[in-house]
Amino acid sequence: MVKDDIIIRNASIEDIDQIMNLEINSFDTGIREVKKTYADRLKIFEDGCLVIEGKNKNIIGFVTSELWDVIKENKDYYKKFDLNHDVSKVHTDEGKELYISSIAISKDYQHKGYGNLIFNKLIDKMILKYGIEAVSLIVSENWASARKLYNRNGFSEIYRIEEFFNCNDGKFNGIIMKKEL
């Protein structure tokens, strides 16, 4: 159950160390994104990066995103989904497709509604401010709770990238999911 003593706000570069701690604690070594990637996301599209701040100003969750041009799904579309990709090459402030590039919630706060809260807060904000027409993301086939969250929010699988995620316990397909608005 989500408690009232949290704040959801835009992330800033001052949050990068706490964001990276969540990244390290949430993802296997082979699929973690690097600090430079997060710094670039904040520099290029700070508006698309939110954090959940708990007690003592500790960050308990984050979500990052980019705006992409909406294009018909084709082989070039799927190339955009690389880990640690160069945000400056795909993000455009005029884009109408919101790409959720990462989301993580501290283990102590998982399964309590915080992921759903920040996820939908970002989407609602992007609809109002940027008039987005679609939302896309990529998720590992073995992340059942994340897939459940996205399915519950109206996302559908549109494509699979073989062995996209190189985790400590094996390689897993990446499932690209999308929701048209």
Rank of each mutant, 00 (worst) to 15 (best):
D4V: 02
I175C: 04
G54Y: 03
Y130W: 08
I176F: 05
N84G: 10
G54A: 07
F45E: 08
I176N: 04
N153K: 06
F81H: 06
E53C: 15
K121F: 13
F81R: 03
R152D: 15
A146N: 06
N116W: 03
S156A: 07
D76V: 06
F172V: 05
L67F: 03
E23Q: 10
I103S: 12
K57Q: 15
V51I: 12
R152H: 14
N74T: 01
A146G: 07
V70K: 11
K179S: 11
R152T: 15
D5H: 09
I158G: 00
G115S: 05
K178H: 05
D82N: 07
E53L: 12
A134P: 11
E73C: 06
I138A: 04
Y114T: 08
K178S: 10
D15N: 13
I103E: 07
K178G: 04
T29Y: 15
S101W: 00
S26M: 01
Y78F: 14
F172A: 04
T29R: 08
T37W: 04
M20E: 05
E33N: 14
Y38H: 10
I7D: 01
E94A: 14
N120V: 04
N84P: 09
Y99C: 15
G113S: 11
I176V: 15
E46L: 06
H85A: 08
I176E: 06
N21M: 10
Y78L: 06
N120I: 01
I8P: 12
D169W: 11
N10P: 10
F119L: 11
N10F: 08
N58V: 12
K80Y: 09
D5K: 02
V139P: 10
D17L: 05
N151D: 08
T37Y: 13
T92N: 13
V90P: 01
G113V: 03
T92E: 01
D4K: 12
D69K: 13
W143G: 00
A146W: 04
I123N: 14
G54L: 02
N84I: 01
K80L: 13
K35F: 00
K148I: 05
D40T: 03
N120R: 13
F155M: 03
E33R: 09
I71S: 15
L122F: 07
G30Q: 00
N25T: 06
D82P: 01
I19C: 03
N166I: 13
K171P: 09
I7L: 13
I132H: 06
G115R: 00
I60W: 07
I31V: 15
C167W: 01
K89D: 09
L149K: 07
F27P: 09
E97R: 12
N56Q: 12
M126S: 14
L83G: 03
N173Y: 04
R160C: 05
I13F: 02
E157L: 09
D40F: 00
Y109I: 00
L117Q: 14
E14P: 10
G54V: 02
C49F: 14
D4F: 08
D124S: 14
F62H: 13
A104F: 00
I44L: 06
D76W: 11
N84T: 03
G115D: 01
K57T: 11
M1G: 14
Y77Q: 05
F27C: 05
Y114P: 15
I16L: 13
E46A: 11
W68N: 12
